[in-house]
């Protein structure tokens, strides 16, 4: 391993893995089917936790009611909303999200929205007081990537006054 070839491999491996990860998420973001899901804050906890916003996603269907903890579960998004346990979506489900149940909540890896520190408080207020939603790109394999945070149907960039984003 301690040869020049080994060193070359050791130096290239992280770069290749990181580039592949970035490319995969970029591909998911551009190729996935777009869908908007409403979000809301959960009182009395602070939505703004560090440099990211935390919220609950409204899937439009009861999730994780019978089993509060489950390693594999999912939510069918199209054509009809339905919660399912296990890795296989129900027959006829065209678009779905894969995830798990933790402490009675369904999580699909879309529970954080990173934001500039300066906009944190303003955005938190808007998520609490306005109709907020996540715009997602969902792949046929059930993996979701966040594209944008919408406030009253508009991108959060447009919702925050210009002077606050500068």
């Amino acid at each position: 391993m301690k040869t020049r070839t080994g060193l070359l491999f050791a130096l290239l491996l992280p770069i290749v893995m990181l580039a592949a990860s970035a490319a995969r998420h970029h591909w998911q973001r551009t190729r996935g089917e777009r869908i908007d899901l409403p979000i809301h804050g959960y009182d009395p906890r602070d939505l703004l936790s560090g440099h990211y916003l935390r919220y609950r996603v409204g899937y439009g269907v009861a999730t994780c009611a019978q089993t509060p903890n489950l390693p594999t579960a999912g939510v069918c998004l199209k054509p009809r909303r339905a919660f399912f346990t296990g890795a296989t979506p129900p027959r006829g489900c065209r678009l779905y999200l894969r995830g798990h149940c933790r402490r009675g909540r369904f999580e699909a890896g879309i529970e954080r929205f990173y934001l500039p520190e300066a906009n944190g408080v303003a955005l938190e207020k808007r998520v609490r007081n306005h109709n907020a939603a996540l715009r997602l790109a969902v792949t046929p394999e059930g993996e979701a990537t966040i594209i944008d945070l919408l406030i009253e149907g508009r991108s959060w960039h447009e919702s925050i006054p210009r002077r606050q984003t500068d």
Binding site: A22, R29, Y52, I110, R112, Y114, I146
Partner: peptide, 19 residues
């Protein structure tokens, strides 16, 4: 290099809002 690899994972998570 190790630290930058860790920071890069954080950067990708931040850019793509990975939860």
């Amino acid at each position: 290099f190790q630290l930058l690899c860790l920071a890069s994972i954080g950067l990708i998570a931040q850019i793509y809002h990975l939860g």
